[in-house]
Design a protein around this nucleic acid. Structure first.
Lengths: 341, 341
DNA sequence: TCGTAAGATGGAACCGATTCCAGAATCATG
DNA sequence: CATGATTCTGGAATCGGTTCCATCTTACGA
């Protein structure tokens, strides 16, 4: 048998020891690969293990060893396609290295996020990978400091935390996208995205502003809505901007949720992208390539982000110092950036 | 302090007992709400807990109590938007009830799935929620039987497993969609989706065939591609079907991945849905509502699926018998089903 | 041949909690 | 005041492993 149970009772190391007629410490040594084990002992133990279908209890091992081979993963929302890709790549890489992933959604709430962090600590996870809701919450900062475990941040800048980070170079992609719009003749470019209390927004904004400044044009500050990554926020503010006269001739949305909301608003108003208004999305939805018209976008490799996050975590677990990993972005012109003027 | 640690050392129940000047068993009783605790004792213990910032170790509690308050969640691919919605709703509901979720992707492989199941058993999860790759693998069946823990299946029919299940009524939605196409005059309707070794496909196929039979028309068996849920498979077979002469005048894709692949094939071939070919997607991608043209679809509530899965799991954990929960589907006509004739 | 080191093995402590059991303290009752 | 019942508390066993330490063999060199 190989079920790990007999008569509904779990097979423990004691059963194995009894069956093999040896001490339970010898069984443990044999299975953990201790050097002081004779061939005869090894054989007896392996036979008993095989016969009983024994497999060590990870819980008991964790308690003793102090390591759970479990990583906590906290994001705003797993249903966000970008995060889902990150989570998948990350889980695969962790699994390949013998770790499991506990997934928690923060639902965009600092309070939930904080509760989740504390729960992960009580569960004694070996490390935490997180895309935090905000960088400026002192409460979160305190909670994180009390974690005392390796931490990898996704697209967040926080000092004095001793954390690794996967950082996206949003600047380049957004700069290129904005420069393209300016070159096409747009001056009134709207920008709808999340708040400035996360690195993501700040870096994008930097690229946006720099493109205008380098072109010697005024930055259209009045067309900025930097309040939230959720679709609802983008829906309301896009609708609002486009109701004005004159209205923006181009629109950039930052993040998956913002893009969804903005597209709904445009749809509602009957405005066609690539014709009535030029449109750039930062971060791609799946199927962007088959949208009509195809949507110009600032792309980043979510799979690489997940893989890098896992990689940085594994390095820290091996005692290395925290470090950073940069993810590139690339602006791709499709036809949604035509028209609008 | 409230960090749960002092001097880098974890605060244990022993520290609390020492500080309060009582036995550690008394501390435990106080914290677990045992009735035999005097007010004086309660006060002393609570003071010490507060002062030391003690929080019980879930690992140790689990070992002793035999329950981890952890649920394993296995799906093919978390980056599938439908599964992501299911996972989110499920995690939220489990969390609300004090459970955490370990996420594992099976990557569509029976072998990975099986390894994951065994790993979850070793981790002593209290239950497993899974969308299995196949129903007909005897190996998986054996593995599942050896789990001996509550199991909730997503859209799968497996007997003798003592499992609960969230079952989608695909039949109704697909029947309505097919009937609509037939009414519009289509006879050569192609159907691209996954294999028949999962309930999902079988139930959809039943609806598809019944609609033709009820209309007194022959079922277009030659336009069926039932080989896989992945986009690659759908891309190849859609391309293949549409290269023939005469070609199908309408297309139904079953599942998120199939829809993505088919849309890419149509795009490649320069065929416009709603004009050159009538198109129905089973399961919705996000943003389907703002696609041009809007895509007719068979919808099901993924959030409800996740919530129900968690609900059924919680019921089983409370000792209830396994049961089933049915999720409805609804065909919505949009404009992608126009044209094609 | 003896002393010593190396190789194996068993016993016991330990990880951090819960819970059973026995005994002490308190109280009511005859 | 003695007795029995009740309430509370501490000690020890337990969950299932790992690892330290002591002991016993065996082998080897002087």
């Amino acid at each position: 048998m190989s079920s790990g149970e007999m008569d509904g009772e779990q097979v423990t190391i004691r059963h194995v020891a009894a069956r093999a007629g040896v001490a339970l410490s010898s069984v443990s040594r044999t299975l953990t690969g201790h050097p002081d084990v004779s061939p005869a002992m090894r054989q007896k133990v392996e036979e008993a293990v095989e016969a009983l279908g024994y497999e060590p209890d990870l819980l008991a091992q964790s308690l003793r060893s102090g390591t759970t081979r479990t990583i906590g993963f906290i994001i705003r929302d797993i249903a966000n396609p970008l995060f889902a890709l990150v989570a998948r790549a990350c889980e695969q890489e962790l699994r390949r290295n013998g770790y499991s992933m506990i997934l928690m959604n923060s639902d965009g709430s600092v309070e939930t996020e904080s509760k989740n962090l504390l729960l992960l600590r009580r569960r004694r996870v070996d490390g935490v990978i997180a895309s935090l809701v905000a960088e400026d919450s002192p409460y979160i900062k305190k909670t994180i400091l009390s974690l005392r475990r390796p931490l990898v941040l996704l697209d967040r800048e926080m000092k004095d935390l001793n954390a690794s980070a996967v950082i996206t170079d949003h600047y380049t992609g957004v700069y290129d996208a904005t420069a393209h719009l300016i070159k096409m003749g747009h001056e009134e470019v709207a920008f709808v995205t999340g708040a400035e209390n996360v690195y993501t927004t700040r870096d994008r904004l930097r690229g946006f502003r720099a493109a205008f400044q380098d072109a010697g044009r005024p930055v259209p500050e009045k067309w900025m809505a930097l309040g939230g990554f959720d679709a609802e926020y983008a829906l309301i503010h896009t609708r609002n901007f486009l109701a004005k006269t004159p209205r923006p001739t181009a629109l950039i949305t930052g993040g998956i949720g913002s893009t969804a909301g903005a597209l709904r608003a445009l749809n509602e108003l009957g405005l066609q992208i690539g014709k009535d208004i030029a449109f750039v999305a930062i971060d791609e939805w799946p199927l962007f390539d088959v949208f009509t018209p195809p949507i110009s976008s600032v792309y980043r490799d979510a799979k690489a982000m997940g893989g890098e996050a896992a990689h940085l975590m594994l390095e820290m677990l091996n005692g290395k110092e925290p470090s950073e990993s940069i993810i590139e972005t690339k602006f791709t012109v499709r036809t949604s950036t035509d028209g609008g003027l």
